[in-house]
Amino acid sequence: MLTSENFETQTNPFGPASKVKLSTLGPGAEAQVAAVGGNGPISRRLQEMGVVPGVSIRVVKTAPFGDPFEVRLLGYSLAMRKNEAELVEVFA
């Protein structure tokens, strides 16, 4: 079982891969969550919805007016705004 100690070491299990913000990815891109920054309600909600380190994410599409956008993770679809996705760092 994981505890907060080995949680820290779990955040970067992929060694040196390029880390980018989720908001920079376009439709079709696939990535793995590296870390979710911030500690406000947005960060918490993202993590509770399953955006936690290690989870695979695929960007599906952008809404008609350019924002928000849709990602697929853990077998379901989640919508979020670009500025919210800036909190999420991914290994692309």
Binding site: M1, L2, T3, S4, F7, Q10, V36, N39, S43, R44, Q47, E48, G50, V52, P53, V55
Partner: peptide, 13 residues
Amino acid sequence: SDNENARIFARYS
């Protein structure tokens, strides 16, 4: 743990 991120991560793990 007080670390919220750690709690969420532990559950999902």
